[in-house]
Design a protein around this nucleic acid. Sequence first.
DNA 1: CTGCCATGGTTGCACAACCCAACCACCTCG
DNA 2: CGAGGTGGTTGGGTTGTGCAACCATGGCAG
Lengths: 145, 145
Amino acid sequence: MHTADAVETIQREMTVFARRARAAAGRMHPELSLVSYTLLGHLEESGGCRSTDLAAHYALDKSTVSRQVTGLERAGLVERRPDAADHRVQVLHLTGAGQRILAQVTESRRAAFRERLADWSAEDLSRFAHYLVRYNASPGPGRQD
Amino acid sequence: MHTADAVETIQREMTVFARRARAAAGRMHPELSLVSYTLLGHLEESGGCRSTDLAAHYALDKSTVSRQVTGLERAGLVERRPDAADHRVQVLHLTGAGQRILAQVTESRRAAFRERLADWSAEDLSRFAHYLVRYNASPGPGRQD
DNA sequence: CTGCCATGGTTGCACAACCCAACCACCTCG
DNA sequence: CGAGGTGGTTGGGTTGTGCAACCATGGCAG
C-alpha cells in the first residue's frame, strides 16, 4: 500500500468509524450517554480535573461541558470541589456512584470490543493500540474529522 | 502491552477519536457537514445506491437519511433516479456539482490528515490503515462506539 | 384477481448535543 | 486599584437522530 493510499484509507476508515460510533452511541447504554461516559472516563483517568480541561481535551465548547457536568452532578455521578488556590475553579471528581456506573458501562463496552477483536493476535492488538494512541496524541492543527 | 490493556486502549482511543471527530466536524468544511460528506463519499464509491442502503451501511434511521438526502438534493449535489424495476425505489447519484464539491472537500481533508501523519513511516501508515480496515470490516454485533 | 404483509421512503414530533455570544466572578499584573 | 484574562453559567438557536405513523408499491398465497 502506498503512503498516499494509506493516508486516504486512514482518513476514510476513521470517518466511517466516527459515523457508526455516533449512530450507535447511547443505544448500548441508555443509562449513560456516550458523551457522559467519555467525560466520566476522563475524570477517572485524570483523577479529577476542571471543566476547562475536559473542554480542551475533547475540543468541546465550555458551555457544552458545563451542561453535561450539570447533568452528571444532578445524577449524582460527579461532585464539584472548590479549589483552595483559585476560587473560580471547581475540581470535578467521580462519586462512588459515578465510579460504579462507569465500571459497569466500561465492562459491557469492553466485552463488545473484546468480541470484536477476538480473532486478533496479541501483537496486532498491541500495535493497533499504539497507533491509535500515537494518532490521537499528535496535536494536529486540524483536529481532523 | 498486555492484550487486555490493548483492548482497553483501543476502546478508549477510538472513543476519543469519535468525540473529537464530532467536535471538529463541519468546522473545516462549513459547506458540507460530516454526515453529508460521508453520504456523498459512499455514493461515489458505490456508484449510486438507495437510501436504505445508506441507512444500513451507517446504522442510521431511514428518516435521517431521507432528510439528509433531501438537503443534498436541494443543494444540487445528488439526484434521484427512478428505478425501472421497482417503482418504490429511488436510486441516488452524484451530480457534477456533487462530484466537484466532494473532490474538493476530500482534498482538503486529505491535506489535514497528511500533515497529521507526516512523521509516520510508510510502514507504520500502511499497518495502521490495515488495522483500521480490519476493525471496521468486522461485523461486530455491538456496532461498537 | 384479491387480500395481506413486507419494503422504500417521507413527515411529525421530541430530544440530545452543539456552538456562539453575553455575562458574572475571580485572578493577575502593571 | 483598574484592565484584561480565565473559569464557568445561561440564553438562544441549529443540527442530527430516533421513533412512530403514514403512503405507495411490490410480492405472494389463496
